[in-house]
């Protein structure tokens, strides 16, 4: 009973906030609407007994949206003032495509005769996940980790203009001219 109530409340929150992302008049509101949508889905994943994944979704998405809001403000130049904004193209086509996709998926969800459940969940799903990642599915871990590292490096290389060579000189021993460094950092290099 309690679970059902929470599930339906979260369903409404997830959909309404998801739609709000493309409706509201402010970048901050759009970003945090998306964050709320993710938190609602995170709670539902919790209800589906994947505690670790659910909490991680909440953690990651709130953090990411906090940073995203800054990007929004930075790149879109919005005052906190609520300005009506509509920056869309092909609105009608997009709407049609989205509707078709939704109807197809919904029909699939309702009409396909889903099989009954096979197997039983383990008593501690978090431990099971950890053992899977560190045991039979080790390959996933070993692939994902370097991809993440590569992402960090690639992200910085793409986005930044001044590299560490600009800051610390060709031999990385420290900048010759500290006065030209607008951000000297805290560990005294």
């Amino acid at each position: 009973m309690f679970v059902d109530v929470v599930f339906w409340v979260m369903t409404v929150v997830a959909v309404v906030m998801g739609a709000a992302v493309f409706v509201v008049d402010s970048m901050a509101r759009a970003t945090y609407a998306l964050a709320l949508s993710f938190v609602a889905v995170g709670v539902q994943v919790l209800l589906l007994h994947q505690d670790y994944v659910g909490v991680i979704v909440i953690l990651m998405m709130v953090m990411e949206m906090a940073v995203m809001a800054v990007y929004m403000v930075m790149f879109m130049g919005m005052n906190p003032a609520l300005m009506p904004m509509s920056m869309v193209h092909d609105k009608r086509k997009a709407l049609a495509a989205a509707s078709v996709v939704f109807l197809t998926l919904a029909a699939g969800a309702l009409l396909i005769p889903w099989p009954t459940r096979r197997g039983q969940p383990s008593s501690d799903t978090t431990r099971a996940l950890g053992e899977a990642l560190m045991g039979s599915k080790m390959l996933v871990m070993t692939v994902v980790s370097p991809v993440m590292v590569a992402t960090i490096v690639a992200g910085i290389v793409i986005a930044s203009k001044r590299s560490r060579y600009d800051r610390l000189g060709d031999d990385l021993r420290g900048a010759a001219d500290h006065s030209a460094d607008p951000q000297r950092g805290g560990v005294g290099r």
């Binding site: 130049g77 005052n79 003032a81 609520l82 300005m83 607008p182």
Partner: peptide, 13 residues
């Protein structure tokens, strides 16, 4: 809005 002009852009450091 409310007489506050929107901010204008410029290159940062």
């Amino acid at each position: 809005p409310s007489g506050i002009p929107l901010a204008e852009g410029g290159d940062d450091r």
